[in-house]
Amino acid sequence: MNARRALYFDGRSSRAHAVEAVIDGGELALHGDGVARREPLSALRITARLGRTPRTIAFADGAQLVLDDADDLDAAFASADRVQSWVDRIERRWRSVALAAAISVATGVLLLQFGVPWAAERIARRMPAAVEAGLGRSVLDQLDRWAFEPSTLPPARREALAQRFADLLEPGEDASVRIAFRHAPKIGANAFALPGGTIVFTDQLVALVGDEREFLAVAAHELGHERHRHTLRQALQGSAVAVLAALFAGDVSSAGSVVVAVPTFLLDGHYSRAFESEADEAAFATLVAHGISPRWFATIMRKLEAEASDTTELPYLSSHPPTAGRIARAEGLADGFEAALPAQHAAVH
């Protein structure tokens, strides 16, 4: 074989010797720059191949030879690391690189689309009730401190709505689900399903309600969130995405927080749209079961939309699915529902 230019270090000092290395007849021979050395290849270890990076050959006495990578080096050294030699061959073939990319992307998509929601659902279901209730209390405390004020609704009105709401509950559910009213000028018309069973309605939402059945439509939607533990699952999924993004982009520490925060934010919206649709379906089922047309859901959604359009300049950042689709879905179901019971619901139109 031809002579190769290499750097020899005796392992005792940092002096570099520029030598010529020849691999021949099962031996490595070095000469030049005050070095003359000959060793059987079987006594030497070579570092695994990695891109075009230089290879280091280690002698038993700690000396090292650093030389440029070449195709024939692995064949000469039987001692090469088998795992890394195989990995190196994979890295060099574009087909296997493409396969690796496909595996990585597919795993990421499957994990985020199905794996994370599945795991969050199972964890949420096993969460001790006391932990969930404690979580809900601390969220409500925070909201009370920063966004909420005591409700200004007349107690009789609150009492009446609470009574109507209780009718929606299934037997035994009244022990775990409570409702609360709050004045929330900073938030506007809205309702929240907190972990642990508390559903909060803002006075501003109640003010929008005409018929009580509109209130019940929103309540049924929030009850759907509550029954499916959506708030807890949303929080769990958010943490899981943040951890995954940090693992994936962990080496890019400089801009790490943005690289983690943006996908977390976008996926949060994605997950939340799925939860909203699920809560809508649950609400329609509850309403129909109690003889209330889903059309009331459509009418209150229209009012909420009109209210929100005054203030929202970035509707696509909304966590809810497009309102038009939800209204259409509610009206579609309402048509079927009312066709079965025409007389009772004529007043809606």
Binding site: E91, A101, S104
Partner: peptide, 21 residues
């Protein structure tokens, strides 16, 4: 520094996929 983005991409993506499997 003589690292090359295309070359390192191959190493990185294979690392990722093997880590997954």
């Amino acid at each position: 520094f003589s690292g090359d983005a295309r070359e390192y991409f191959r190493i990185w993506i294979v690392n990722l996929a093997l880590g997954i499997v």
